[in-house]
Protein backbone atom coordinates (compact mmCIF):
# COMPACT_ATOMS: atom_id res chain seq x y z
CA UNK A 1 0.00 0.00 0.00
CA UNK A 2 1.40 3.38 -1.00
CA UNK A 3 1.78 6.27 1.40
CA UNK A 4 -1.01 8.11 -0.43
CA UNK A 5 -3.32 5.12 -0.16
CA UNK A 6 -2.64 4.81 3.55
CA UNK A 7 -3.41 8.49 4.14
CA UNK A 8 -6.60 8.31 2.06
CA UNK A 9 -7.72 5.21 3.86
CA UNK A 10 -7.03 6.78 7.25
CA UNK A 11 -9.06 9.81 6.27
CA UNK A 12 -11.93 7.62 5.04
CA UNK A 13 -11.78 5.74 8.33
CA UNK A 14 -11.87 8.98 10.31
CA UNK A 15 -14.87 10.33 8.37
CA UNK A 16 -16.77 7.09 8.85
CA UNK A 17 -15.81 6.55 12.49
CA UNK A 18 -16.68 10.11 13.46
CA UNK A 19 -19.98 9.79 11.57
CA UNK A 20 -19.15 12.81 9.48
CA UNK A 21 -20.32 10.94 6.40
CA UNK A 22 -22.93 8.24 5.75
CA UNK A 23 -20.95 6.79 2.89
CA UNK A 24 -17.43 7.17 1.61
CA UNK A 25 -16.99 6.66 -2.13
CA UNK A 26 -13.61 5.38 -3.22
CA UNK A 27 -12.21 2.31 -4.89
CA UNK A 28 -11.53 -1.25 -3.88
CA UNK A 29 -9.17 -3.90 -5.12
CA UNK A 30 -9.90 -5.37 -8.51
CA UNK A 31 -10.96 -8.94 -9.20
CA UNK A 32 -9.45 -9.01 -12.68
CA UNK A 33 -6.33 -6.98 -13.52
CA UNK A 34 -6.70 -3.37 -14.68
CA UNK A 35 -10.11 -2.61 -13.21
CA UNK A 36 -10.33 -1.51 -9.57
CA UNK A 37 -13.98 -1.18 -8.58
CA UNK A 38 -15.79 1.89 -7.32
CA UNK A 39 -16.64 1.14 -3.70
CA UNK A 40 -19.14 2.51 -1.22
CA UNK A 41 -17.91 2.22 2.32
CA UNK A 42 -20.46 2.76 5.06
CA UNK A 43 -18.39 1.41 7.90
CA UNK A 44 -14.64 1.57 8.49
CA UNK A 45 -14.56 -2.23 8.86
CA UNK A 46 -15.11 -2.43 5.12
CA UNK A 47 -11.92 -0.57 4.26
CA UNK A 48 -9.66 -3.63 4.12
CA UNK A 49 -9.59 -3.80 0.34
CA UNK A 50 -9.48 -0.02 -0.17
CA UNK A 51 -7.30 0.89 -3.09
CA UNK A 52 -6.28 4.02 -4.92
CA UNK A 53 -3.99 4.07 -7.92
CA UNK A 54 -3.69 5.23 -11.53
CA UNK A 55 -5.88 2.39 -12.75
CA UNK A 56 -8.91 3.74 -10.90
CA UNK A 57 -10.57 4.78 -14.11
CA UNK A 58 -14.09 5.80 -13.17
CA UNK A 59 -15.30 9.28 -12.41
CA UNK A 60 -16.74 8.83 -8.92
CA UNK A 61 -18.92 11.93 -9.26
CA UNK A 62 -21.16 9.61 -11.29
CA UNK A 63 -22.42 8.10 -8.07
CA UNK A 64 -23.30 11.36 -6.34
CA UNK A 65 -26.67 11.57 -8.05
CA UNK A 66 -27.69 8.16 -6.71
CA UNK A 67 -28.06 9.40 -3.17
CA UNK A 68 -30.85 11.45 -1.59
CA UNK A 69 -29.80 15.04 -0.93
CA UNK A 70 -29.73 14.41 2.84
CA UNK A 71 -27.04 11.73 2.53
CA UNK A 72 -23.70 12.94 3.76
CA UNK A 73 -21.23 11.77 1.14
CA UNK A 74 -17.50 11.60 1.53
CA UNK A 75 -15.53 10.93 -1.61
CA UNK A 76 -12.17 10.96 -3.26
CA UNK A 77 -11.87 13.65 -5.89
CA UNK A 78 -9.17 14.17 -8.45
CA UNK A 79 -9.09 17.39 -10.48
CA UNK A 80 -11.75 16.30 -12.95
CA UNK A 81 -13.95 14.72 -10.31
CA UNK A 82 -13.80 17.87 -8.22
CA UNK A 83 -15.00 19.86 -11.23
CA UNK A 84 -17.73 17.30 -11.95
CA UNK A 85 -18.94 17.55 -8.36
CA UNK A 86 -18.88 21.34 -8.60
CA UNK A 87 -20.99 21.24 -11.70
CA UNK A 88 -23.43 18.77 -10.18
CA UNK A 89 -23.81 21.22 -7.32
CA UNK A 90 -24.56 23.95 -9.89
CA UNK A 91 -27.20 21.66 -11.33
CA UNK A 92 -28.57 21.11 -7.81
CA UNK A 93 -27.90 17.40 -7.76
CA UNK A 94 -26.52 17.39 -4.22
CA UNK A 95 -26.03 20.16 -1.70
CA UNK A 96 -22.42 21.24 -1.15
CA UNK A 97 -22.77 21.03 2.63
CA UNK A 98 -23.51 17.32 2.38
CA UNK A 99 -20.38 16.50 0.43
CA UNK A 100 -16.92 16.12 1.88
CA UNK A 101 -14.34 16.05 -0.87
CA UNK A 102 -11.01 14.46 -0.11
CA UNK A 103 -8.81 15.77 -2.89
CA UNK A 104 -5.95 13.99 -4.56
CA UNK A 105 -3.62 15.80 -6.95
CA UNK A 106 -3.85 13.45 -9.90
CA UNK A 107 -0.94 12.06 -11.88
CA UNK A 108 -3.31 10.76 -14.55
CA UNK A 109 -5.31 7.63 -15.27
CA UNK A 110 -3.73 4.84 -17.26
CA UNK A 111 -5.86 3.89 -20.24
CA UNK A 112 -6.47 0.15 -20.04
CA UNK A 113 -6.80 0.07 -23.82
CA UNK A 114 -3.32 1.46 -24.29
CA UNK A 115 -2.06 -1.29 -22.02
CA UNK A 116 -3.86 -4.09 -23.86
CA UNK A 117 -2.86 -2.73 -27.25
CA UNK A 118 0.78 -2.89 -26.24
CA UNK A 119 0.78 -6.08 -24.18
CA UNK A 120 -2.13 -8.10 -25.52
CA UNK A 121 -5.41 -8.53 -23.73
CA UNK A 122 -4.37 -11.37 -21.48
CA UNK A 123 -2.67 -9.61 -18.60
CA UNK A 124 -1.71 -11.53 -15.50
CA UNK A 125 -0.40 -8.78 -13.26
CA UNK A 126 0.29 -5.08 -13.13
CA UNK A 127 2.79 -3.41 -10.83
CA UNK A 128 2.68 0.30 -10.30
CA UNK A 129 5.53 2.42 -9.05
CA UNK A 130 5.87 6.23 -9.28
CA UNK A 131 6.17 7.15 -12.96
CA UNK A 132 6.49 3.53 -14.02
CA UNK A 133 4.27 0.60 -14.74
CA UNK A 134 5.22 -3.04 -15.18
CA UNK A 135 2.77 -5.28 -16.98
CA UNK A 136 3.12 -9.04 -16.85
CA UNK A 137 1.60 -11.53 -19.25
CA UNK A 138 2.08 -15.29 -19.23
CA UNK A 139 5.04 -14.99 -21.62
CA UNK A 140 6.37 -11.45 -21.32
CA UNK A 141 7.01 -8.55 -19.07
CA UNK A 142 6.64 -4.98 -20.26
CA UNK A 143 7.83 -1.76 -18.67
CA UNK A 144 6.36 1.62 -19.49
CA UNK A 145 6.87 5.20 -18.47
CA UNK A 146 3.60 6.32 -16.99
CA UNK A 147 3.18 9.12 -19.53
CA UNK A 148 3.00 6.59 -22.37
CA UNK A 149 -0.13 5.06 -20.92
CA UNK A 150 -2.09 8.09 -19.82
CA UNK A 151 -5.59 8.35 -21.16
CA UNK A 152 -5.76 11.10 -23.76
CA UNK A 153 -7.89 13.27 -21.46
CA UNK A 154 -5.29 12.92 -18.70
CA UNK A 155 -2.38 13.60 -21.04
CA UNK A 156 -3.90 16.99 -21.84
CA UNK A 157 -5.30 17.68 -18.37
CA UNK A 158 -5.16 21.32 -17.37
CA UNK A 159 -6.62 20.87 -13.88
CA UNK A 160 -5.11 17.79 -12.25
CA UNK A 161 -5.35 19.35 -8.78
CA UNK A 162 -8.58 19.45 -6.82
CA UNK A 163 -9.78 23.06 -6.71
CA UNK A 164 -12.36 23.09 -3.94
CA UNK A 165 -11.75 19.95 -1.93
CA UNK A 166 -12.25 20.05 1.83
CA UNK A 167 -8.89 18.43 2.34
CA UNK A 168 -6.12 17.69 -0.11
CA UNK A 169 -3.78 14.78 0.43
CA UNK A 170 -0.51 14.88 -1.46
CA UNK A 171 1.55 17.58 -3.13
CA UNK A 172 0.08 19.59 -6.03
CA UNK A 173 1.12 18.32 -9.46
CA UNK A 174 1.90 20.25 -12.63
CA UNK A 175 -0.78 20.38 -15.33
CA UNK A 176 0.01 17.90 -18.10
CA UNK A 177 0.04 19.20 -21.63
CA UNK A 178 -3.13 21.25 -22.22
CA UNK A 179 -1.77 22.27 -25.63
CA UNK A 180 -2.63 18.75 -26.77
CA UNK A 181 -6.33 19.52 -26.44
CA UNK A 182 -5.93 22.55 -28.65
CA UNK A 183 -3.92 20.52 -31.14
CA UNK A 184 -6.57 17.83 -31.33
CA UNK A 185 -9.39 20.32 -31.79
CA UNK A 186 -7.35 22.13 -34.43
CA UNK A 187 -6.46 18.90 -36.22
CA UNK A 188 -10.06 17.77 -36.31
CA UNK A 189 -11.38 21.23 -37.14
CA UNK A 190 -8.72 21.68 -39.80
CA UNK A 191 -9.88 18.69 -41.79
CA UNK A 192 -12.31 19.01 -44.68
CA UNK A 193 -15.97 18.40 -43.89
CA UNK A 194 -15.74 15.12 -45.78
CA UNK A 195 -12.71 13.96 -43.80
CA UNK A 196 -14.36 14.94 -40.53
CA UNK A 197 -17.45 13.01 -41.47
CA UNK A 198 -15.34 9.98 -42.36
CA UNK A 199 -13.58 10.19 -38.98
CA UNK A 200 -16.90 10.50 -37.17
CA UNK A 201 -18.41 7.65 -39.19
CA UNK A 202 -15.43 5.41 -38.52
CA UNK A 203 -15.72 5.99 -34.78
CA UNK A 204 -19.50 5.82 -34.43
CA UNK A 205 -19.99 2.76 -36.63
CA UNK A 206 -18.50 0.49 -33.98
CA UNK A 207 -21.15 1.53 -31.48
CA UNK A 208 -23.19 -1.29 -29.99
CA UNK A 209 -25.54 1.08 -28.18
CA UNK A 210 -24.74 -0.36 -24.77
CA UNK A 211 -24.67 3.22 -23.44
CA UNK A 212 -21.67 2.57 -21.22
CA UNK A 213 -20.48 6.09 -22.19
CA UNK A 214 -23.72 7.54 -20.89
CA UNK A 215 -23.73 5.50 -17.71
CA UNK A 216 -20.10 6.32 -16.92
CA UNK A 217 -20.66 10.06 -17.33
CA UNK A 218 -21.44 12.03 -14.16
CA UNK A 219 -23.45 14.51 -16.22
CA UNK A 220 -25.73 11.84 -17.71
CA UNK A 221 -28.25 11.50 -14.93
CA UNK A 222 -31.51 12.16 -16.79
CA UNK A 223 -34.31 9.94 -15.49
CA UNK A 224 -35.10 9.21 -19.11
CA UNK A 225 -32.51 9.55 -21.83
CA UNK A 226 -33.61 10.85 -25.24
CA UNK A 227 -32.73 7.53 -26.88
CA UNK A 228 -35.14 5.73 -24.57
CA UNK A 229 -38.13 7.89 -25.47
CA UNK A 230 -40.83 5.88 -27.20
CA UNK A 231 -42.94 8.82 -28.27
CA UNK A 232 -41.72 10.92 -29.83
CA UNK A 233 -38.87 8.76 -31.03
CA UNK A 234 -35.75 10.87 -31.52
CA UNK A 235 -33.56 8.32 -33.20
CA UNK A 236 -33.66 5.00 -34.97
CA UNK A 237 -33.60 2.03 -32.64
CA UNK A 238 -31.15 -0.02 -34.67
CA UNK A 239 -27.39 -0.16 -34.86
CA UNK A 240 -27.88 1.65 -38.16
CA UNK A 241 -25.71 4.50 -39.32
CA UNK A 242 -28.45 7.01 -38.46
CA UNK A 243 -29.12 5.43 -35.08
CA UNK A 244 -25.50 5.33 -34.00
CA UNK A 245 -24.57 8.74 -35.36
CA UNK A 246 -27.57 10.43 -33.77
CA UNK A 247 -26.63 8.93 -30.45
CA UNK A 248 -23.05 10.14 -30.60
CA UNK A 249 -23.88 13.64 -31.80
CA UNK A 250 -26.70 14.31 -29.36
CA UNK A 251 -24.89 12.75 -26.42
CA UNK A 252 -22.01 15.13 -27.06
CA UNK A 253 -24.25 18.16 -27.59
CA UNK A 254 -25.99 17.56 -24.29
CA UNK A 255 -22.60 18.00 -22.68
CA UNK A 256 -22.04 21.50 -24.01
CA UNK A 257 -20.67 23.51 -21.11
CA UNK A 258 -21.13 20.51 -18.84
CA UNK A 259 -18.15 18.35 -19.75
CA UNK A 260 -14.99 18.37 -17.64
CA UNK A 261 -13.11 16.15 -20.12
CA UNK A 262 -12.50 13.39 -17.58
CA UNK A 263 -12.61 10.82 -20.41
CA UNK A 264 -14.69 8.34 -18.40
CA UNK A 265 -16.95 7.82 -21.45
CA UNK A 266 -14.09 6.62 -23.60
CA UNK A 267 -12.62 4.39 -20.92
CA UNK A 268 -15.99 2.72 -20.38
CA UNK A 269 -16.57 2.03 -24.08
CA UNK A 270 -16.13 -1.67 -24.90
CA UNK A 271 -15.62 -0.82 -28.57
CA UNK A 272 -12.76 1.68 -28.16
CA UNK A 273 -14.78 4.50 -29.67
CA UNK A 274 -13.16 7.90 -29.42
CA UNK A 275 -15.61 10.48 -28.15
CA UNK A 276 -13.70 13.28 -26.49
CA UNK A 277 -12.64 14.79 -29.81
CA UNK A 278 -16.23 16.10 -30.07
CA UNK A 279 -16.67 17.14 -26.45
CA UNK A 280 -13.26 18.82 -26.42
CA UNK A 281 -14.34 20.87 -29.44
CA UNK A 282 -17.43 21.95 -27.46
CA UNK A 283 -15.30 22.70 -24.40
CA UNK A 284 -12.95 24.82 -26.51
CA UNK A 285 -15.90 26.71 -27.99
CA UNK A 286 -17.29 27.36 -24.51
CA UNK A 287 -13.95 28.71 -23.41
CA UNK A 288 -13.31 30.83 -26.50
CA UNK A 289 -16.81 32.17 -27.01
CA UNK A 290 -18.02 32.48 -23.42
CA UNK A 291 -14.83 32.29 -21.32
CA UNK A 292 -16.46 29.40 -19.50
CA UNK A 293 -14.75 26.29 -18.16
CA UNK A 294 -17.07 23.77 -16.59
CA UNK A 295 -16.80 23.10 -12.88
CA UNK A 296 -14.31 25.79 -11.91
CA UNK A 297 -16.72 26.82 -9.18
CA UNK A 298 -20.00 25.49 -7.85
CA UNK A 299 -22.11 28.57 -8.66
CA UNK A 300 -21.75 29.57 -12.31
CA UNK A 301 -24.38 28.27 -14.71
CA UNK A 302 -23.01 27.08 -18.05
CA UNK A 303 -23.77 29.63 -20.80
CA UNK A 304 -26.41 27.49 -22.49
CA UNK A 305 -28.26 26.90 -19.25
CA UNK A 306 -28.01 30.46 -17.91
CA UNK A 307 -30.85 32.90 -18.15
CA UNK A 308 -30.66 36.63 -17.57
CA UNK A 309 -33.07 39.41 -18.37
CA UNK A 310 -30.33 41.45 -20.02
CA UNK A 311 -29.32 38.64 -22.35
CA UNK A 312 -27.70 39.99 -25.49
CA UNK A 313 -29.88 37.76 -27.63
CA UNK A 314 -33.12 39.59 -28.31
CA UNK A 315 -35.52 36.68 -28.33
CA UNK A 316 -34.99 36.06 -24.63
CA UNK A 317 -36.19 39.46 -23.43
Amino acid sequence: MTDLEMKLKAEAKRLLDEHLVDVFIGFRKENAPLHPQPAFFTNSDQLDDFVYNNLCQNNLAKFLTRYPHETKIGMIVRGCENRSVNHLIVERQHPRENIIMIGVPCTGIYDWRKITQRCGEEISDVELSPGKITVKTSKNQFEFESKELLHVSCARCSQPNPISADLVIGEPVEPKDPARAKRQVETFGGMTAKARYEWFTHESERCIRCYACREACPMCYCAECFVDHGAPRWTESMVSKAGMQTWHIIRAFHQTGRCVDCGACERACPMDIRMTYITEKLNTDMENEYQFICGMDDKTQPPFAAFTMDDKTRFVA
Binding site: Q37, P38, A39, F40, K62, I208, R209, C210, Y211, A212, R214, E215, A216, A268, P270
Partner: peptide, 13 residues
Protein backbone atom coordinates in the same frame (compact mmCIF):
# COMPACT_ATOMS: atom_id res chain seq x y z
CA UNK B 1 -25.17 -3.64 -7.58
CA UNK B 2 -23.70 -0.52 -6.01
CA UNK B 3 -20.90 -0.01 -8.47
CA UNK B 4 -22.92 -1.25 -11.47
CA UNK B 5 -23.38 1.54 -13.99
CA UNK B 6 -26.43 -0.06 -15.56
CA UNK B 7 -24.94 -0.14 -19.04
CA UNK B 8 -25.31 -2.98 -21.50
CA UNK B 9 -21.67 -4.07 -21.85
CA UNK B 10 -22.00 -7.40 -20.00
CA UNK B 11 -25.17 -8.50 -21.76
CA UNK B 12 -24.40 -7.22 -25.25
CA UNK B 13 -20.98 -8.88 -25.26
Amino acid sequence: QRSCLGCGVCTFL
